[in-house]
Design a protein around this nucleic acid. Structure first.
Lengths: 133, 133
DNA sequence: CTTGAACTTGACGTGGGCGTCAAGTTCTAC
DNA sequence: GTAGAACTTGACGCCCACGTCAAGTTCAAG
Protein backbone atom coordinates (compact mmCIF):
# COMPACT_ATOMS: atom_id res chain seq x y z
CA UNK A 1 0.00 0.00 0.00
CA UNK A 2 1.45 3.34 -1.01
CA UNK A 3 1.20 6.76 0.49
CA UNK A 4 -2.04 7.94 -1.11
CA UNK A 5 -4.04 4.96 0.02
CA UNK A 6 -2.40 4.88 3.44
CA UNK A 7 -3.03 8.56 4.01
CA UNK A 8 -6.69 8.19 3.01
CA UNK A 9 -7.06 5.19 5.31
CA UNK A 10 -5.89 7.33 8.22
CA UNK A 11 -7.88 10.40 7.14
CA UNK A 12 -4.71 12.30 6.36
CA UNK A 13 -3.06 13.77 3.27
CA UNK A 14 0.12 12.43 1.66
CA UNK A 15 1.73 15.74 2.54
CA UNK A 16 1.01 15.25 6.24
CA UNK A 17 2.33 11.70 6.16
CA UNK A 18 5.59 12.77 4.53
CA UNK A 19 5.86 15.57 7.05
CA UNK A 20 5.42 13.17 9.96
CA UNK A 21 8.14 10.97 8.49
CA UNK A 22 10.45 13.92 8.07
CA UNK A 23 9.78 14.82 11.70
CA UNK A 24 10.72 11.34 12.82
CA UNK A 25 7.28 10.18 13.87
CA UNK A 26 7.25 7.40 11.32
CA UNK A 27 9.53 5.27 9.16
CA UNK A 28 8.53 3.83 5.81
CA UNK A 29 9.93 0.99 3.74
CA UNK A 30 10.73 1.91 0.19
CA UNK A 31 10.15 0.05 -3.06
CA UNK A 32 13.25 -0.35 -5.26
CA UNK A 33 12.05 2.65 -7.22
CA UNK A 34 11.81 4.82 -4.14
CA UNK A 35 8.07 4.82 -3.41
CA UNK A 36 7.03 4.52 0.21
CA UNK A 37 5.30 1.28 1.23
CA UNK A 38 2.89 1.05 4.17
CA UNK A 39 1.23 -1.82 6.02
CA UNK A 40 -1.64 -2.15 8.48
CA UNK A 41 0.54 -1.36 11.48
CA UNK A 42 1.59 1.87 9.77
CA UNK A 43 -2.02 2.82 9.32
CA UNK A 44 -2.73 2.23 12.99
CA UNK A 45 0.25 4.38 13.78
CA UNK A 46 -0.95 7.12 11.46
CA UNK A 47 -4.40 7.06 13.01
CA UNK A 48 -2.90 7.34 16.46
CA UNK A 49 -0.77 10.26 15.31
CA UNK A 50 -3.80 12.00 13.85
CA UNK A 51 -5.80 11.54 17.03
CA UNK A 52 -3.02 12.89 19.20
CA UNK A 53 -2.39 15.90 17.00
CA UNK A 54 -6.10 16.60 16.80
CA UNK A 55 -6.19 16.37 20.58
CA UNK A 56 -3.83 19.32 20.67
CA UNK A 57 -0.40 17.72 21.04
CA UNK A 58 2.49 19.10 19.04
CA UNK A 59 4.85 17.11 16.85
CA UNK A 60 7.49 17.52 19.55
CA UNK A 61 5.07 16.16 22.15
CA UNK A 62 4.29 13.14 20.06
CA UNK A 63 7.95 12.57 19.27
CA UNK A 64 8.74 12.48 22.94
CA UNK A 65 6.07 9.79 23.32
CA UNK A 66 7.27 7.85 20.30
CA UNK A 67 8.75 4.97 22.26
CA UNK A 68 5.38 4.34 23.85
CA UNK A 69 3.68 4.13 20.48
CA UNK A 70 5.93 1.31 19.37
CA UNK A 71 4.55 -2.22 19.77
CA UNK A 72 6.60 -2.56 22.99
CA UNK A 73 9.40 -5.06 22.23
CA UNK A 74 8.05 -8.23 23.85
CA UNK A 75 8.76 -9.10 27.46
CA UNK A 76 11.37 -11.77 26.73
CA UNK A 77 14.10 -9.60 25.27
CA UNK A 78 15.86 -7.08 27.47
CA UNK A 79 13.83 -3.92 27.08
CA UNK A 80 16.90 -1.72 27.32
CA UNK A 81 20.30 -3.25 26.52
CA UNK A 82 22.15 -3.12 29.86
CA UNK A 83 25.19 -1.72 28.09
CA UNK A 84 24.88 1.49 30.08
CA UNK A 85 25.11 1.72 33.82
CA UNK A 86 22.04 3.67 34.82
CA UNK A 87 22.27 7.44 34.15
CA UNK A 88 20.81 7.31 30.65
CA UNK A 89 18.05 4.99 31.77
CA UNK A 90 17.27 7.26 34.69
CA UNK A 91 17.13 10.29 32.46
CA UNK A 92 14.76 8.63 30.03
CA UNK A 93 12.65 7.58 32.98
CA UNK A 94 12.62 11.10 34.42
CA UNK A 95 11.73 12.66 31.11
CA UNK A 96 8.94 10.13 30.68
CA UNK A 97 7.60 10.90 34.13
CA UNK A 98 7.65 14.62 33.45
CA UNK A 99 5.82 14.02 30.21
CA UNK A 100 3.28 11.92 32.03
CA UNK A 101 2.77 14.68 34.58
CA UNK A 102 2.38 17.27 31.80
CA UNK A 103 -0.18 15.08 30.16
CA UNK A 104 -2.14 14.69 33.36
CA UNK A 105 -2.11 18.46 33.87
CA UNK A 106 -3.54 18.86 30.41
CA UNK A 107 -6.20 16.27 31.01
CA UNK A 108 -7.10 17.94 34.29
CA UNK A 109 -7.42 21.35 32.64
CA UNK A 110 -9.62 19.97 29.88
CA UNK A 111 -11.70 17.98 32.36
CA UNK A 112 -12.31 21.06 34.47
CA UNK A 113 -13.35 22.96 31.37
CA UNK A 114 -15.59 20.07 30.39
CA UNK A 115 -17.31 20.23 33.76
CA UNK A 116 -17.74 23.98 33.54
CA UNK A 117 -19.08 23.72 30.03
CA UNK A 118 -21.51 20.98 31.01
CA UNK A 119 -22.63 23.02 34.01
CA UNK A 120 -23.09 26.08 31.85
CA UNK A 121 -25.17 24.16 29.35
CA UNK A 122 -27.28 22.72 32.13
CA UNK A 123 -27.82 26.18 33.60
CA UNK A 124 -28.95 27.62 30.31
CA UNK A 125 -30.82 24.78 28.69
CA UNK A 126 -32.12 22.63 31.52
CA UNK A 127 -30.78 19.99 33.85
CA UNK A 128 -31.33 16.98 31.61
CA UNK A 129 -27.72 16.01 31.00
CA UNK A 130 -25.91 12.85 31.87
CA UNK A 131 -22.95 13.82 34.03
CA UNK A 132 -20.60 11.72 31.86
CA UNK A 133 -20.75 8.14 33.14
CA UNK B 1 -4.15 47.28 38.25
CA UNK B 2 -2.75 47.83 34.78
CA UNK B 3 -1.69 45.45 32.10
CA UNK B 4 1.87 44.77 33.17
CA UNK B 5 0.94 43.76 36.68
CA UNK B 6 -2.12 41.82 35.54
CA UNK B 7 -0.15 39.92 32.93
CA UNK B 8 2.54 39.02 35.45
CA UNK B 9 -0.11 37.88 37.94
CA UNK B 10 -1.42 35.46 35.32
CA UNK B 11 2.05 34.42 34.12
CA UNK B 12 1.47 36.06 30.76
CA UNK B 13 2.98 38.94 28.82
CA UNK B 14 1.22 42.25 28.11
CA UNK B 15 1.42 41.34 24.45
CA UNK B 16 -0.53 38.12 25.01
CA UNK B 17 -3.15 39.92 27.09
CA UNK B 18 -3.71 42.55 24.39
CA UNK B 19 -3.89 39.81 21.82
CA UNK B 20 -6.55 37.96 23.81
CA UNK B 21 -8.54 41.16 24.05
CA UNK B 22 -8.21 41.76 20.33
CA UNK B 23 -9.44 38.21 19.77
CA UNK B 24 -12.49 38.83 21.91
CA UNK B 25 -11.52 36.62 24.85
CA UNK B 26 -11.49 39.52 27.25
CA UNK B 27 -12.75 43.06 27.74
CA UNK B 28 -10.93 45.69 29.72
CA UNK B 29 -12.06 48.94 31.31
CA UNK B 30 -10.01 51.95 30.35
CA UNK B 31 -8.74 54.85 32.40
CA UNK B 32 -9.61 58.32 31.01
CA UNK B 33 -6.15 58.40 29.45
CA UNK B 34 -6.67 55.10 27.66
CA UNK B 35 -4.75 52.65 29.83
CA UNK B 36 -6.36 49.27 30.45
CA UNK B 37 -7.55 48.56 34.00
CA UNK B 38 -7.87 45.05 35.43
CA UNK B 39 -9.37 43.58 38.58
CA UNK B 40 -9.17 40.26 40.39
CA UNK B 41 -11.85 38.65 38.26
CA UNK B 42 -9.88 39.60 35.16
CA UNK B 43 -6.84 37.87 36.58
CA UNK B 44 -8.82 34.71 37.23
CA UNK B 45 -10.04 34.91 33.69
CA UNK B 46 -6.52 35.36 32.35
CA UNK B 47 -5.27 32.40 34.36
CA UNK B 48 -8.08 30.27 33.00
CA UNK B 49 -7.24 31.37 29.48
CA UNK B 50 -3.59 30.52 29.95
CA UNK B 51 -4.42 27.08 31.32
CA UNK B 52 -6.73 26.30 28.44
CA UNK B 53 -4.30 27.49 25.80
CA UNK B 54 -1.47 25.59 27.44
CA UNK B 55 -3.72 22.54 27.43
CA UNK B 56 -3.77 22.75 23.67
CA UNK B 57 -6.97 24.66 22.89
CA UNK B 58 -6.91 27.33 20.21
CA UNK B 59 -8.14 30.90 20.56
CA UNK B 60 -11.16 29.92 18.50
CA UNK B 61 -11.88 26.99 20.82
CA UNK B 62 -11.73 29.21 23.86
CA UNK B 63 -13.85 31.87 22.20
CA UNK B 64 -16.56 29.31 21.58
CA UNK B 65 -16.47 28.50 25.28
CA UNK B 66 -16.46 32.13 26.33
CA UNK B 67 -20.01 32.18 27.66
CA UNK B 68 -19.13 29.38 30.05
CA UNK B 69 -16.19 31.30 31.45
CA UNK B 70 -18.42 34.18 32.46
CA UNK B 71 -19.61 34.26 36.09
CA UNK B 72 -22.96 32.81 34.97
CA UNK B 73 -25.57 35.58 35.42
CA UNK B 74 -27.23 34.56 38.72
CA UNK B 75 -30.22 32.24 38.83
CA UNK B 76 -32.79 34.94 39.53
CA UNK B 77 -32.67 36.78 36.24
CA UNK B 78 -33.78 35.09 33.08
CA UNK B 79 -30.67 33.45 31.70
CA UNK B 80 -31.68 34.19 28.14
CA UNK B 81 -34.19 36.97 27.49
CA UNK B 82 -37.21 35.14 26.02
CA UNK B 83 -37.44 37.73 23.26
CA UNK B 84 -36.67 35.08 20.67
CA UNK B 85 -38.78 32.06 20.03
CA UNK B 86 -36.37 29.15 20.16
CA UNK B 87 -34.23 28.72 17.02
CA UNK B 88 -31.32 30.85 18.21
CA UNK B 89 -31.37 29.25 21.60
CA UNK B 90 -31.43 25.81 20.02
CA UNK B 91 -28.50 26.63 17.81
CA UNK B 92 -26.42 27.88 20.71
CA UNK B 93 -27.36 24.75 22.58
CA UNK B 94 -26.38 22.50 19.68
CA UNK B 95 -23.07 24.25 19.17
CA UNK B 96 -22.38 23.94 22.86
CA UNK B 97 -23.16 20.25 22.79
CA UNK B 98 -20.90 19.70 19.82
CA UNK B 99 -18.14 21.56 21.60
CA UNK B 100 -18.71 19.43 24.66
CA UNK B 101 -18.45 16.28 22.56
CA UNK B 102 -15.26 17.54 20.90
CA UNK B 103 -13.80 18.23 24.28
CA UNK B 104 -14.65 14.77 25.53
CA UNK B 105 -13.05 13.23 22.45
CA UNK B 106 -9.91 15.19 23.20
CA UNK B 107 -9.92 14.13 26.81
CA UNK B 108 -10.42 10.51 25.76
CA UNK B 109 -7.52 10.65 23.30
CA UNK B 110 -5.22 12.17 25.89
CA UNK B 111 -6.38 9.73 28.56
CA UNK B 112 -5.67 6.79 26.29
CA UNK B 113 -2.24 8.18 25.58
CA UNK B 114 -1.72 8.70 29.28
CA UNK B 115 -2.54 5.06 29.94
CA UNK B 116 -0.23 3.89 27.19
CA UNK B 117 2.55 6.12 28.41
CA UNK B 118 2.11 4.92 31.99
CA UNK B 119 2.09 1.31 30.80
CA UNK B 120 5.19 1.91 28.74
CA UNK B 121 6.99 3.42 31.70
CA UNK B 122 5.94 0.56 33.91
CA UNK B 123 7.17 -1.96 31.33
CA UNK B 124 10.56 -0.31 31.05
CA UNK B 125 11.24 0.90 34.56
CA UNK B 126 9.29 -1.33 36.90
CA UNK B 127 5.73 -1.77 38.07
CA UNK B 128 5.86 0.72 40.95
CA UNK B 129 3.45 3.30 39.63
CA UNK B 130 0.19 4.46 41.05
CA UNK B 131 -2.47 3.84 38.37
CA UNK B 132 -3.79 7.37 38.76
CA UNK B 133 -6.25 7.37 41.68
C1' DC C 1 4.37 3.06 -26.47
C1' DT C 2 1.59 6.63 -24.86
C1' DT C 3 -1.22 8.84 -21.55
C1' DG C 4 -2.59 10.11 -17.10
C1' DA C 5 -2.58 9.23 -12.24
C1' DA C 6 0.32 8.74 -8.43
C1' DC C 7 4.74 9.26 -6.57
C1' DT C 8 9.39 11.75 -5.56
C1' DT C 9 12.08 15.95 -3.53
C1' DG C 10 12.34 20.91 -3.05
C1' DA C 11 10.73 25.32 -2.26
C1' DC C 12 7.50 28.77 -1.19
C1' DG C 13 2.89 30.21 1.02
C1' DT C 14 -0.36 30.36 5.05
C1' DG C 15 -2.72 30.98 9.61
C1' DG C 16 -2.32 30.90 14.56
C1' DG C 17 -0.11 32.76 18.71
C1' DC C 18 2.41 35.46 19.95
C1' DG C 19 7.69 38.31 20.17
C1' DT C 20 9.65 42.45 18.99
C1' DC C 21 10.78 46.81 17.32
C1' DA C 22 8.86 51.72 16.30
C1' DA C 23 7.01 56.03 17.56
C1' DG C 24 4.34 58.36 20.42
C1' DT C 25 1.69 59.26 25.19
C1' DT C 26 1.20 58.89 30.17
C1' DC C 27 2.56 57.84 34.76
C1' DT C 28 5.88 57.99 38.75
C1' DA C 29 9.79 59.81 41.21
C1' DC C 30 12.87 63.08 42.18
C1' DG D 1 10.15 69.99 35.15
C1' DT D 2 12.48 66.08 33.65
C1' DA D 3 14.19 61.24 33.35
C1' DG D 4 12.73 56.79 32.90
C1' DA D 5 9.33 53.19 33.28
C1' DA D 6 5.02 51.66 31.64
C1' DC D 7 1.41 52.25 28.49
C1' DT D 8 -0.80 52.94 23.62
C1' DT D 9 -1.46 51.34 18.54
C1' DG D 10 0.68 49.57 14.37
C1' DA D 11 3.51 46.76 11.75
C1' DC D 12 6.76 43.32 10.80
C1' DG D 13 8.93 38.66 12.11
C1' DC D 14 8.95 33.85 13.64
C1' DC D 15 7.71 28.91 14.34
C1' DC D 16 4.59 25.21 13.49
C1' DA D 17 1.80 22.09 10.76
C1' DC D 18 0.92 21.64 7.04
C1' DG D 19 -1.13 23.36 1.71
C1' DT D 20 0.40 24.13 -2.71
C1' DC D 21 2.95 24.63 -6.80
C1' DA D 22 7.07 22.97 -9.62
C1' DA D 23 9.67 19.70 -12.15
C1' DG D 24 10.79 15.33 -12.72
C1' DT D 25 10.04 9.84 -12.15
C1' DT D 26 7.27 5.70 -11.92
C1' DC D 27 3.18 2.96 -12.21
C1' DA D 28 -1.31 0.94 -14.43
C1' DA D 29 -4.29 0.94 -18.36
C1' DG D 30 -5.24 0.68 -23.07
Amino acid sequence: MRIGEAAAAAALTPRAVRYYEQQGLLEARRTPSGHREYGLSDIRRLRTLRELLEAGLTIADVRSFAHVLDPAPAEGAAAVPPADGAPESCEVRDVSLRRLADLEDRIDALTQLRDRLAAGIADRFGEAFDPAP
